[in-house]
Amino acid sequence: MAYYNPESILTDAQKAPCTFELAVPGLAPLNNGSAIEHGTKLDLPLWMAEMLAVSKPAGPSSTSLVSLDMPPALGPRVLNALSADPKSVELRAQAQWFYGLGERMLDLFEEEKTVELLIDTFKQRALEIADKSQNTRSTQQGGDSGDFMGGLDEMERQLFRAAHDGSNAVKKWFESSSRS
């Protein structure tokens, strides 16, 4: 992760559900001021959740401060839908930086199958993006593909833009070179 890259900062700011294993009086501001007890559930940004889940407090108990759960965007419902048909899922509705979230979470969880599924999803959707980026008129002026851009996560949008910019620049050069 690049330090000054706003994209990775925004990726890290996405939230994951955490369950506190211990009472942590010092972190009460996180819970709107009310005390954090054993079993309190909170949605914390990834960067903080990871720190809390990995760090172990000194003392007799061997558990970490919080236990981290998979965010709903990577829950079984979404994953099943993705394995059924990657192109029909609106990833943006799940998480703005869906793949980034998946990458960060799967660094912590050992789930080979989910990794495979995400990679496969990305590949199939990338093909769709390559095709759709060739005629942007239909994607921008609505119709059912008007939702297409709305369903792309931020990384896929950049891909769409890159594919579109490429063919656009070629078109532009062709036009400008025929004029002069």
Binding site: F122, K123, A163, D165, S167
Partner: peptide, 21 residues
């Protein structure tokens, strides 16, 4: 090559999900 460079580069970069793995 210049036309597809952005797209292909983006896909290959994106496929490095969990590169360490």
């Amino acid at each position: 090559v210049a036309e597809v460079r952005g797209f292909v580069g983006g896909v290959v970069d994106g496929l490095r999900i969990n590169r360490s793995r």
